[in-house]
Design a protein around this nucleic acid. Sequence first.
DNA 1: CAGGATCCACTATTGGATCCCG
DNA 2: CGGGATCCAATAGTGGATCCTG
Lengths: 218, 218
Amino acid sequence: MEPPRSEEVLVERAHGLAGRTVGELGRSLEVDVPATPRRAKGLVGQLVERALGASAGSADEPDFLEIGVELKTLPVGPEGRPKESTFVATIKLNEMAETDWEASTVWRKLRRVLWVPVEADPALPLPARRLGAAILWSPSAEQVAALRADWETIATYVLRGEADRITGHLGTYLQVRPKAAHGGVRTRAPDAAGGYQWTGPRGFYLRTRFTEQVLRAL
Amino acid sequence: MEPPRSEEVLVERAHGLAGRTVGELGRSLEVDVPATPRRAKGLVGQLVERALGASAGSADEPDFLEIGVELKTLPVGPEGRPKESTFVATIKLNEMAETDWEASTVWRKLRRVLWVPVEADPALPLPARRLGAAILWSPSAEQVAALRADWETIATYVLRGEADRITGHLGTYLQVRPKAAHGGVRTRAPDAAGGYQWTGPRGFYLRTRFTEQVLRAL
DNA sequence: CAGGATCCACTATTGGATCCCG
DNA sequence: CGGGATCCAATAGTGGATCCTG
């Protein structure tokens, strides 16, 4: 499918997904959907990408590059609350010195997002889970200010050479957590002496308390 | 010891307790203090009552009746946060129809409270735990409004004959939980038909999120 | 490895149950 | 039993670890 040429086209396509199941979506794309997401963690996100015409495998840019919109599926429980935090972007430890908030991948991805809720009750087989009504969203001024404050707190640690002191506890809404295939992976970060050190790769995540606000705003 | 004749006298006495241990307090009152509160749950509260001159065993009225002040010890963890909810009063299910917030035992006890923090680290033997600086407190207008709203929600259940539907989940700050020697105790409550039904005795408790505000306000 | 995310062990919180004294 | 409270099993929440694809 071609990339949508406008937000209107994107939203129209997204509304066509509301109420459909993950199994139906998989059949229409000729993809096999296993009974559980355990070994297919990103599958639903990738199916929705294809169904909406995102340019697959786009690196480090919003999924719908032409119209500046990021796509995020959001696992929701029976009461409509998010069940998990949301991955936003890998943290580029060695590039933070040349980056500010406005230029950050976090800001470039979060300024415009199409949220697609997906049922996530573990008792429900993956193919039976339904997609919800998509929400095309931008953060409020307060949310931008809070996200920026979190981002700058984290950036300060990295620039001081204290990347290893960053834990998931930091940040009101935006946090940093490990992001790797397994615990043995290493990457480089600045150290306090102007050189570099080895540390585990990590990513920025939105806490559920943030995405819960997003869903309630509707 | 005689009851304090004024808040000033009470606060002066309370300041004399700050920094002392429960063991010291027990010795001065010739009371044996066991190593743990497990079998002496209300002991510290009763020792502080005696040390400050509360009229012991006062029924259903503020501890310092003459000056209208209630005494509450507050178990606090290493970071100064309350470790437990705080019992306020038994809920008189069969008298709620004749009571409103202004006349309630909850309001009469909470409008003026002397909070006495007590260390509560389980690793610390009871006699070694120290008393903190007492706080003579009244609720803010917002706090009164919130407590009253919780109380009225609960009262509505009782008056509808739905006392059995009240659980600890109700109430932002004020909740209702069992209050009995054991689960077999029964008491009477109104039923929906104008008669009565048997149910377990319960009491009003302040959630720690409330008492945490009290401690931070200083 | 970056992007799509969820898993799950551990910690924190909750609220129903309980204990002593007069 | 009412007033002084804490205990502790079960649930909810957090954040470090992990899984698949291109």
